[in-house]
Write a protein that binds this DNA or RNA. Structure first.
Length: 281
DNA sequence: AACTACCGCAACCGCGATATG
DNA sequence: TCATATCGCGGTTGCGGTAGT
C-alpha cells in the first residue's frame, strides 16, 4: 500500500504564492510560531495550502535574513569545496552560508557553479590533452565522467574557515550572525583547532586538484589525462566509506546517524582519513 | 515582430528518518 | 513492537523571463 498523502490534494492550492498568502503565513508565524505542526498550520490561518508547502515557503522565502542571489566569490568557493567533500548535502552546505537556503544553494550549483567549475576542469584537462576536450554524446558540459553525481571526495575543507581558529569569527564578521549561532555547534561543520593548517587556495579547483595529488594511492592522478577516471574512483571509494559509516561499525561509533546532528567529529574522518586512521592505530 | 531555445528559480514530489501513541 | 503522522531532505518539474534566430 502506498504512502498516505500529507494533505487533501483536491482541496489544496498549488503553484506560486500570492502576496496575500505570504502575508498571512508570515504574520502568523511571526506572532505564534509554527506551533510545531506544519500540517495543521494552514488550516489555522485559513490557507488552502499543503503544510509542506507552507514550510517550504517560510524556510526558503519568508524567513527573516534570507539572502537571494548575489553569491560572492567566497561563497562560491565554500559551496564548491563542500560539494567536493560531502556531496550534495545541500542543507549542510547551506548551514555554512548564513542567510542561504538549501534550495538556493542547490539551484545555484545546478545552474551556475557546476558549469563554472566543471568548465574550469575541462579547460585544465584539455590543456593537458586536447583529445579529451569534448564528447560527442551531448554530455560534455557535465564533465567527462559525470563525476558530479558521485561526490564525497576526500580532502580537507579548511575553506569553511580559511584561517583555522579564526574562520568562524571571520564568517560571523562578514555575514553578521550565523544562522545556527545558538551556542550549539552540533548543526554545523565546525572546524576543530587540531586540524592541520593546509595550503590556502584561492582557486577551489586548484585545491581539489592539489588534494588529489597529495592523496595516498593517487599516483595516477599526477597524470592529468587520467584525472577524471581516477577522480571517479576516489569519489566512489569515499562515497562507499561514508555510506558504510551510516551503520555503526563498533560500539564507539554507534552514535547518532541523523544528518541534523552531524558535526565536525562525525564528518571529519571522511575528510581527513589519514589523520583519523592514524589516531585509531 | 514572431517564434524558439535556453536559463534561472520557485515549488512540488517522493522517500527516509524520526516522533508519537 | 508496530502503525501512523510529521518532518526534512534531495531530486525533479514547470513556469516566466530573456536571448538568439
Amino acid at each position: 500500500m502506498g504512502r498516505a498523502p500529507c494533505c487533501d490534494k483536491a482541496n489544496v492550492k498549488k503553484g506560486s504564492w500570492s502576496p496575500e498568502e505570504d502575508a498571512k503565513l508570515k504574520s502568523y508565524i511571526e506572532q505564534h510560531g509554527t506551533g510545531g505542526n506544519w500540517i495543521a498550520l494552514p488550516h489555522k490561518i485559513g490557507l488552502k495550502r499543503c503544510g509542506k508547502s507552507c514550510r517550504l515557503r517560510w524556510l526558503n522565502y519568508l524567513r527573516p535574513n534570507i539572502k537571494h542571489g548575489g553569491f560572492s566569490e567566497e561563497e562560491d568557493n565554500i559551496i564548491f569545496r563542500l560539494y567536493i567533500s560531502i556531496g550534495s548535502r545541500w542543507s549542510i552546505i547551506a548551514s555554512q552560508l548564513p542567510g542561504r537556503t538549501d534550495n538556493d544553494v542547490k539551484n545555484y550549483w545546478n545552474t551556475k557553479l557546476k558549469k563554472k567549475f566543471l568548465g574550469k576542469q575541462r579547460k585544465e584537462t584539455s590543456a593537458a590533452d586536447p583529445k579529451q576536450e569534448t564528447r560527442g554524446d551531448g554530455h560534455g558540459d557535465l564533465g567527462i565522467t559525470g563525476w558530479p553525481h558521485q561526490p564525497a571526495l576526500t580532502y580537507p575543507i579548511d575553506h569553511v574557515c580559511h584561517d583555522v581558529g579564526q574562520g568562524q569569527a571571520s564568517m560571523r564578521n562578514e555575514h553578521g550572525v550565523r544562522d545556527s549561532d545558538d551556542g550549539d555547534a552540533s548543526n554545523s561543520l565546525v572546524m576543530p583547532s587540531t586540524v592541520p593548517q593546509q595550503q590556502i587556495y584561492d582557486d577551489p579547483f586548484s585545491l581539489a586538484w592539489s588534494s588529489l595529488q597529495q592523496n595516498s594511492g593517487a599516483q595516477a592522478l599526477l597524470c592529468p589525462t587520467s584525472f577524471s577516471t581516477e577522480l571517479d574512483e576516489i569519489l566512489r571509494f569515499n562515497l562507499t566509506k561514508m555510506e558504510g559509516a551510516d551503520r555503526p561499525v563498533d560500539e564507539s561509533n554507534a552514535a547518532t546517524k541523523s544528518e541534523e546532528n552531524m558535526n565536525w567529529n562525525e564528518v571529519s574522518p571522511f575528510l581527513y582519513p589519514n589523520i583519523y586512521d592514524e589516531r585509531r592505530l
